[in-house]
Design a protein around this nucleic acid. Sequence first.
DNA 1: AGAGGTTACGGGCAGCGTAAGGATC
DNA 2: GATCCTTACGCTGCCCGTAACCTCT
Lengths: 294, 294
Amino acid sequence: MNIRSLETFYWLAKLGNFRATGETLHVSQPTISARISGLEDELGVELFDRSGRSAVLTAKGRELLIYAEKILELHQELLEKVADPESIHGTIRLGVAETIAYTWLPKLIERINETYPAINLELDVDVSPSLAEKLIKREIDIAFLIGDVRHEGFVTKHFCSYSLTWVASKKMPLPETPLSLSSLARIPIITYPRMSEPHTYIRSLIHPVGRSIQIHSSSSLSTIIRMTVDGMGVSALPKEIVSSELQSGRLRELEVEANVPDLVFNVAYITAPGGHIVRAIADLSLALVASNNE
Amino acid sequence: MNIRSLETFYWLAKLGNFRATGETLHVSQPTISARISGLEDELGVELFDRSGRSAVLTAKGRELLIYAEKILELHQELLEKVADPESIHGTIRLGVAETIAYTWLPKLIERINETYPAINLELDVDVSPSLAEKLIKREIDIAFLIGDVRHEGFVTKHFCSYSLTWVASKKMPLPETPLSLSSLARIPIITYPRMSEPHTYIRSLIHPVGRSIQIHSSSSLSTIIRMTVDGMGVSALPKEIVSSELQSGRLRELEVEANVPDLVFNVAYITAPGGHIVRAIADLSLALVASNNE
DNA sequence: AGAGGTTACGGGCAGCGTAAGGATC
DNA sequence: GATCCTTACGCTGCCCGTAACCTCT
C-alpha cells in the first residue's frame, strides 16, 4: 500500500467521479480505476459502489476513509516538517487573471522557483469566471482572480487591489478636464468583458446620463490597451498595467468626475490533504505582496 | 513515498543496522540502503548518521520517526479493520521446537491456512535456545519454545504444558515397579540436550543417589524415541509424543518414584508496527490450544 | 582482515497512457 | 447515444538481488 493509492481513494471518495479524480491528480482516468481496484484487491474488499451515477463509498470504504484522512494528514505534516523545501517536487497549475499576469506574475514565478526549485509550474491565463470554474473542476490548483470561490473545500483570501485610472490616447481630442460624466458618455469606452465588475459598474454609471453608450469590451487586456492607444476610446485601467504607455506618452491620465471602484483580486485554492504545497505557494504569494507594500 | 519505505526507516531507526533491518524485512541489505537513500533523496534531508559503528538518527530523522510510527500504526489498524483476512498476504517465519512440531503444528498450520490463505509460512524446527536467538536476530517472526524471550519489543505468553512420563522399551528388563530412584540411576537415561530444563532436572534428581549416571542426550526428539524403543535406556517424554509407540506396545509407561516437572512451552513474538499479522497468528494459536482444552 | 555500507548492473514487475470494449441511463 | 468505468496492451521506469567495491577499525 502506498500513500498515492490512499490519496486517490480520498479524492474519489470526495468527488465520486473517476474522471474528475484523474484530473485532480494529473493522471488518466484508467489510472484511477487501476489504483482503486488495486487497493480493493489488496484489502480484499469492495470500497465503492459503482452501480449508480457516481461512485459511492461502501461501509468498508467509509471505514477506510477515516484512516486515509489521518494518514494523508500526517504525511502532509511530515513533508512540511522534515522535507527540505528545495526537494519538494510536483506540478502546480496556476490560474492567473490577465491583470495579475501583467503585474505580479513574473515576480511570483521567480519567487516560487527560488523557494521550491523542484516544483513544476503550469500557467493558465484566463478570465476570472473561467478560472473559478476550472478551480472547482480541479483543472487548476490555485487561482488569482476577481471574485470569491464559494465552494466547499476552497479558501479565498484577498490578494491585492488596483485603483482604476481613466486613460486615453494622447491624440484623442477631449472636450474638457476634468471630464464630466455626460461628456464621458459620448466617448467610446473600452473595458473589461460584459458581466465583469468594471463593465457593469461603468454601464450603470453612464446609463442615467446618455442613452446610446458605446462600450467596447475585450477579455484581453492587451487588446484593451492597444485599442486605447489607437484612440478608439478611453478606458479605466490599473495604473500599474499601463505604466510604460504613460511614461512614453502613448497614453495620458484623465481626470473624470466619477471614479470606478477598485479592482479586487483574490487568491483561491483547495484545502485538502496533499495540498500543502498549494497552500504554501498561496502563502508565499501573499507574503510577496505584503513585503512589496511595506 | 510509500509505507514500505517508512517501515524500513522505522526498523533501521530501531536496530541501527542495515543488515539486521534487511533480515527483519526479508530483503537484502543493499535494498535497505536503496530504500533509505531514496527516502533521503525524496525529502532532501539526511536521516541517518552512518559515520559510527551503527546508524544513528539525525535531528530530522528523529522528527520523521514520530510521523513514521504514527503512520505505521494507523496503517496496521487500517489493515485489521477493513482488510479481509483472506486477502492478507506476506511471509511469516515460524520457529518451532520439536515437541510442538510433533503435536500442535499440523493443526496450527491447517488453522492458519484456513484463516489467512494468502499467508506464506516458513517453518524452522530447532531447539529452544536457537529459536530464542533467531527470534532476537529477527530471523523468525514467532517462536514456540521452552523458556522466556526477555528482550525489549518481544512478548512471551504461555502456550501449553506437557507432563513428562517415564517410558521404556517393552523388552527392557526392569528390577521393580514402581521404580525407585536408586534403581533408575543404574539404567541409562535418554533425554533432552545438556543445559535444557529436563536434562538439568534429571541430573540433579539422580546425582545424590548414584555416582556413575549414564545420560544420553539428543536434540532430536525422534532420535530419543528411537533409542528408547531400541532399549538403550529409559526416557521422560510427553505422553502425546509417544502415543503411537505406547499403543503399539513398542513402549510402556513406567512408574517412577520421582516425577519430572512439566515441560512448559511459550509463544514469543515481536511487538512492532507492521507486526499485526504476527500477533494475529499468535492469538490464533493460543485460541487453538484453548479451544482444544475445553 | 573483517564488519558494514555503497555502487554497478541485469532482470522482473508494477504502473502509466492510449485505445477499445462494456454498462447504464 | 452519451456518459462513465473497465479491460487490453505496449512501454517505461522503479525496485530488487547479486556481486564488486569502498571505508573504517
